[in-house]
């Protein structure tokens, strides 16, 4: 055991955490923006738009990975254009890890944010308007704080999901040690190489982190309900 720990390469842990954080930031803003967009849309547009935005949650991650590859492959126009003109490459890079994880984590953020926004009492918004508050200040000073427990839980879930993303990441970013090998990818790789003890070690690590995150989320929710709860 100590032998193994000494010879361990810890990079998958850092890559996972970094990827999770970056993907969470991306899906945080994209999720809130999408939630606002869908809420403002008419009923029919809403159904279709919501369907599209929720798809990554219900499809196999490999489908998302495949579609991302189609989009970003250097042999295809868009991916090629990004590479040639902006020197941005998503295939087999850490940026690819982030994009793949963000795509999978996004629906969790979007759905939680939307549910939180929809639960905000309409009268609060009306009250803000009749008191002369601008739409912007109503959004930032009323809607966001009141919806914050839901948004926080969405963010934490998105982070947990991004942290453990495997399918889409493996397809888009591959498995390069020290570059794109996350914990999830490492587990699959070590098992296929017969290194069950190393794989088991990563399993313990990711279980501990995920459990910690969910407990934190529950604590945050309990705290939040004191301030924003209703009588």
């Amino acid at each position: 055991m100590t032998e193994m720990l000494k010879s361990m390469d810890w990079s998958p842990l850092w890559i996972s955490l970094k990827t999770g954080a970056a993907a969470t930031i991306l899906s945080f803003f994209a999720g809130i923006f999408a939630a606002r967009l869908v809420m403002k849309a008419g009923n029919r547009t809403k159904w279709v738009l919501d369907g599209i935005l929720t798809l990554p949650l219900v499809l196999p991650p490999t489908v998302a990975g495949f579609l991302l590859l189609l989009l970003f492959s250097l042999k295809r126009p868009f991916g090629n254009m990004l590479y040639v003109h902006f020197d941005i490459k998503f295939v087999q890079t850490w940026q690819g890890c982030v994009v793949a994880a963000a795509a999978i984590a996004f629906p969790l953020m979007y759905r939680n944010a939307r549910a939180a926004f929809e639960q905000v009492d309409e009268n609060l918004i009306y009250a803000g308007r009749t008191l002369g508050m601008s739409e912007m200040s109503i959004f930032w000073k009323v809607i966001i704080p009141v919806a914050s427990p839901g948004i926080a839980s969405g963010t934490i879930l998105a982070f947990a999901r991004a942290l453990g993303e495997y399918g889409a990441t493996a397809m888009l970013a591959g498995n390069i040690l020290g570059k794109t090998r996350t914990i999830a990818v490492a587990i699959a790789y070590e098992v296929s190489a017969g290194n069950y003890d190393v794989a088991g070690f990563w399993v313990v690590i990711i279980v501990l982190i995920s459990f910690f995150i969910v407990v934190c989320m529950n604590m945050a929710m309990a705290q939040g309900s004191i301030k924003s709860g209703r009588w």
Partner: peptide, 21 residues
């Protein structure tokens, strides 16, 4: 005229106080 510019006060049935303030 948007509600912001009407100068009409509205007392809601549930008072609609901002719970975060």
């Amino acid at each position: 005229i948007p509600p912001q510019k009407r100068r009409v006060g509205y007392l809601f049935q549930n008072y609609a106080l901002f719970p975060n303030m």
